[in-house]
Design a protein around this nucleic acid. Sequence first.
DNA 1: ACCCAGGGTCATA
DNA 2: TATGACCATGGG
Length: 220
Amino acid sequence: MNFLKVHDLLLETYGPQRWWPARTPFEVMVGAVLTQNTAWTNVEKAIAKLHEAGAMEAELILKTPQRRVAAWIRSAGYFNVKAKRLRNFCAWYVGHGGEKRLRRLETVALRHELLSINGVGPETADDILLYAFHRPVFVIDAYTRRLFSRLRMLEGDEPYDEMRAHIEARLRRETRSKRKMVPLFNEYHALIVRHGKEICKPRPRCGVCCLAVHCPAAER
DNA sequence: ACCCAGGGTCATA
DNA sequence: TATGACCATGGG
């Protein structure tokens, strides 16, 4: 069993996921911050509120009192924390000349820049890199750790960057060199989330699914 | 009532 | 380096 094979089985089962669900790259970035440890359905409501308020825009969020931003995004949970993080992000975004300027940065430099923002950790940074800037990074989240841990392909508690580098290296090796990594990483993460929501849940352990034959947790 | 959700920061040892 | 507390809404 290799990483590319897991992707192919998930794709056969669920079909293309068409991520990230957003109108613009900036909305991807806002969603990435708002969805931290939060159900996406709650984030959708918050994003709708921002659109209603005409506030899906960095400068406007910056010149809005934090209390009001917090009220807009209330449904996403942790609203005080996230209002502050959204502000930090927007200050960074505007300070670096917006998307057009940021696009010129190399992936490693852009990742380092994102991680310097208070409120943006490795997963949020990689969501933004992959889904807003179309850079070839494999996103690690709780679903990813759970799936590969149950498949016995990883321990599951490896440090973030170690796991990411390992999976990226394996996928490049298992893939024909002509294949583009961005579409692969894009679809793969979306499929893992889809599979995690529907089948590969914390409890009960994995039942019968497209990977059951390879999943130790399903063998009882 | 309890568990979980597309994490990250900060204090502490 | 590695735990633990904390943040908070909403659906099952």
